[in-house]
Write a protein that binds this DNA or RNA. Structure first.
Lengths: 151, 151
DNA sequence: TATTGTTATACTCTATAACTATA
DNA sequence: TATAGTTATAGAGTATAACAATA
């Protein structure tokens, strides 16, 4: 997104001001730009990072289970996993109970890269906490998670 | 986004829980799905709706000024305006002060469609207020707008 | 020299249908 | 029949470079 330089004549936003959807999109753009730039130093995208976290936390889970938990279509998750496997960060092994599914696990390299990515995540969240204040930071996450579950 | 059906075995989210970026992305998906489906009944996308609002609020503004205010590259805004003009919702006229720029304005049809879209927007926000509570709804918007400006 | 609107291009994310192999 | 993974495809959104017309 291009940076919104506040020019001499600011634009009237009309009903966009106070709109949750519009505010969400703008905030999401700002936050993801910061985190994505940070993760890029490890050659990771945000979607790959979240996949690594879920596989780490749920070793042996199938592709479909992970993709559903991430809110990603299983069809669109194939390329993500293929890339992580090609880079030897994730291993897939056929399940013995159900030969249709793969069991996903991190390799030692995957664990290592994830721990470095987590440091970047912590630093990223710290920047947000510094900008927003710890109380408002926590409050914002609570409201967002509440919105995702009730709406 | 596929709906997150809470299965028998929920996945552990690890460091994704409490993460602002992840919470933002999930909430944004939920909210934009509802609003986009609503706007689709008028043949509008959210990006077109926001363009109509800004042109209505700032008649005579140029494409670049509107696109910058929306956080959209001017190159990517060309097709949006072209479609709105093709549908006779927006008119472009060369500026007399600066022949490089267009003055953007809504047509009577554009004003009419925008007013119907605004009703959908109000209904959409009402659904969110019902789900979240009026206080939390207002609080969320404040935090998001704060985040966009300070981060 | 700089800016506006434009074209071209490419990459990401997302959504859907259809196939295979297994169940 | 139903599900897991896969392929193919198409639509959005986004980012950058380069151009003609105008400033």
């Amino acid at each position: 997104m291009p940076s919104r330089k506040e020019t001499a004549r600011p634009m009237r936003l009309g009903s966009l001001a106070g709109d949750v959807g519009y505010a969400l999109k703008r905030a999401q753009a700002v936050v993801s730009a910061d985190f994505s730039a940070s993760l890029a130093t490890l050659g990771l995208r945000a979607s790959q990072f979240s996949a690594l976290v879920l596989i780490d936390q749920n070793p042996g889970a199938s592709q479909t289970r992970v993709s559903l938990a991430l809110g990603v279509e299983k069809a669109n998750f194939v390329a993500t996993i293929a890339d992580l496997e090609r880079r030897a960060l994730v291993v897939r092994s056929r399940s013995v109970e159900d030969a249709r599914t793969y069991r996903l696990e991190l390799t030692a390299q995957g664990v290592d890269l994830l721990s470095r990515a987590r440091e970047l995540q912590v630093a990223h969240e710290s920047r947000l906490t510094d900008s927003l204040g710890a109380g408002r930071h926590r409050q914002l996450v609570e409201l967002l998670e509440l919105l995702s579950t009730v709406a």
